[in-house]
């Protein structure tokens, strides 16, 4: 399978280890990821809070380049980029006038013909669980994991085409295939606060705290994410949360592809596990005899 790959800004910076793990997993599974040449920022929150047309034009340019290179499918690992791309495609598909306008703005034809998939859907829906299972050499047996989806991968459902916006299962099924034990918990799709933690920390941190608390209450050993910003909030801010709420959270948080890479036999040195804030070392020690670390 061949996909145009849109890493987005985060995967070049705060979420660099996500990018590494994604590529390892793709290599093992025989998925070809071709980075969209000369891609630009999707505009994220900043664009759509300033100018509607800008918010559509930025992702449209990337998608138009992918189309020009003949790609029928675009893989987007970041949940925010995914949401922006999907919204753009839907808006353009719904309005021929907009299609003309956008194409004019970006100086390229954008037909909105290609299928846009989150990287989670590429692996979890398009690749085939049986195929993945064949590559598992180091099953993550006994790892009680909370699959966390956040909001942008699932809502609004008519745009995201999530399997179930209230209780999505794509990641859970993937984690099960690699031997882990996904738990049924209640905060799968609650918002992590995204960038709100910066301007309104009381609110943002409460949201993060509630997610960690719910995962912990169900005995999760770790949390798996499919978004670099969710990852950052849940991983980096545990210290701040503990300080604010007097809690003692130390829950390792992983990108779902990191856990897959581990199960495929890669070691932590092969990807960016050392870049995590909450150490996973003792957990991995317990789980797979430290082979990962």
């Amino acid at each position: 399978m061949k996909y145009a790959y849109y890493p987005g800004c985060s995967l070049d910076a705060t979420g660099i280890e996500y990018d590494i793990a994604n590529k390892l997993v793709a290599r093992t599974l025989g998925i070809e990821l071709v980075e969209i040449p000369d891609w630009n920022c999707c505009g994220a929150t900043s664009a759509h809070t300033t100018n509607h047309l800008l918010a559509l034009a930025l992702p449209a340019r990337n998608l138009a380049i992918a189309e020009a290179h003949g790609f029928e499918q675009v893989a987007v690992p970041c949940a925010a980029c995914f949401a922006r791309c999907k919204k753009t495609a839907a808006a353009v598909q719904a309005s021929p006038d907009l299609q003309v306008q956008i194409s004019e703005v970006i100086g390229m034809t954008y037909a909105a013909k290609s299928e846009i998939l989150s990287y989670l859907d590429v692996i979890g829906k398009k690749t085939g669980l049986d195929h993945i299972k064949k590559h598992v050499v180091q099953p993550l047996t006994g790892l009680k994991i909370a699959a966390y989806y956040g909001c942008l991968l699932v809502r609004p459902v008519d745009i995201t085409q999530s399997d179930d916006p209230e209780n999505p299962m794509v990641m859970d099924r993937l984690l099960q295939v690699i031997g882990a034990e996904p738990i049924a918990w209640d905060y799968k799709t609650e918002c992590c606060g995204a960038s709100q933690v910066v301007p309104v920390p009381q609110l943002g941190k409460k949201l993060i705290h509630d997610i960690l608390k719910n995962a912990a209450s169900y005995g999760a050993d770790a949390i798996a994410t499919a978004c670099p910003l969710c990852m950052l909030n849940l991983d980096m801010r545990q210290k701040q949360i503990n300080a604010m709420f007097g809690t003692q959270f130390h829950i390792p948080v992983f990108h779902f592809t990191e856990l897959m890479a581990l199960s495929f036999g890669y070691s932590a040195q092969d990807f960016g596990l050392a870049k995590h804030f909450e150490s996973a070392e003792s957990l991995l020690e317990r789980m797979i005899g430290g082979k990962g670390a």
């Binding site: 179930d164 916006p165 209230e166 209780n167 049924a184 209640d186």
Partner: peptide
């Protein structure tokens, strides 16, 4: 259909 109410869980 009510996943938000726990699907009867």
């Amino acid at each position: 259909i009510y996943g938000e109410y726990g699907y009867g869980r």
